[in-house]
């Protein structure tokens, strides 16, 4: 637990904190601890995205450290998916930078960006499997991108291994995506994202549209990826149960359109098990799933237009 707490230390108070990995220090409660500050895998620095002149993200800054899984929560339209897509430059930010393992993605050319993307796995909301390929070919795709000369036997073995890992039998490899259910497609999406042995996994609403059992299966897979594969993760979700189960830390975005100028868009950034203790009404409302005056605000906003 001591390691976990160290992981969440806020860099803003770094002057009073131990500075280097392995340093022994005395914490506020008087216990002696060893700092195990892990390097950030992904770092957003003042990230801003505008779409059609409308600000979706503004001044987003946070780090995702090696080995941790961060859940990004927030109501629909607050820019969670946009952040995820901007993080691997599927969308171009209008301001700020994204650093992946210290590399500024904005300064890379097409070939370098392709190489960096091969180190990241992305699980899409609707799985986004290639319709024209079999399940096996879908899973092989990232492996072949990294090494086009991989022998067929090795490819087939890897496909079977990945399918087993997501709880599917090897015969599924011959089927087409259209023949699978939503939950199966998501699990294949998982297998495909894992196929390239990523350093970072990005999950875009992985449990949306699934029944509670299948949602928990997906959560379990994310926990396995975190614990067994030691892969850093960012999960975008609306599902608090899922966020608490899979994430060490939660970051909550608030819609830019509802903020006054200068207010930060991140309204919570802390351990997942302490989010209920937040004093911010916007956070507690979301966690408890209470609309409050939201409907009234939406109606007034419509009238104002």
């Amino acid at each position: 637990m001591a390691d976990q707490e160290d992981l969440y230390q806020d860099d803003s108070s770094a002057a009073e904190e131990p500075q280097w990995e392995g340093q022994v220090y005395t914490s506020a409660d008087g216990t002696r601890r060893v700092l195990r500050r892990r390097p950030p895998v992904l770092e957003a620095c003042g990230l801003g995205v505008r779409i059609g002149g409308r600000a979706i993200l503004e001044g987003i800054s946070f780090k995702v450290r090696k080995g941790e899984t961060v859940a990004i929560i927030g109501e629909s339209g607050c820019g969670k998916t946009v952040f995820l897509k901007t993080a691997i430059r599927l969308m171009t930010p209008t301001e700020g930078t994204v650093l992946f393992s210290g590399i500024d993605l904005g300064k890379l050319n097409g070939r370098q960006l392709s190489e960096v993307r091969c180190r990241i796995g992305f699980v899409f909301q609707q799985a986004a499997l290639f319709d024209s390929m079999t399940i096996g070919e879908n899973i092989m795709f990232p492996i072949l991108q990294q090494n086009p000369r991989t022998p067929l036997k090795e490819l087939n073995d890897r496909v079977a291994e990945l399918l087993y890992e997501v709880g599917m039998t090897p015969d599924v490899a011959r089927r087409m995506p259209v023949e699978l259910s939503g939950g199966m497609r998501k699990r294949v999406g998982f297998a495909r994202a894992l196929a390239g042995n990523p350093e970072l996994m990005l999950y875009d609403e992985p449990t949306t549209g699934l029944d509670p059992i299948m949602s928990d299966v997906i959560n379990e897979l994310m926990v396995r990826v975190r614990d067994n594969h030691k892969v850093t993760g960012i999960v975008v979700t609306h599902d608090m149960k899922s966020a608490k189960k899979v994430a060490n830390r939660i970051v909550m975005f608030y819609p830019q359109s509802r903020l006054e100028e200068g207010q930060p868009q991140i309204v919570y950034d802390g351990p997942s098990d302490e989010i209920e203790l937040s004093q911010d009404k916007r956070v507690t409302q979301f966690v408890e799933g209470e609309a409050g005056e939201r409907l009234m605000e939406m109606t007034e906003a419509q009238h104002a237009r």
Partner: peptide, 18 residues
């Protein structure tokens, strides 16, 4: 267009190819 709408183009880009 269907590939764009179902995020298959994004998925493709996220795995490296242009």
């Amino acid at each position: 267009g269907t590939m764009r709408v179902t995020e298959q183009i994004d998925a493709l880009a996220s795995m490296g190819p242009n």
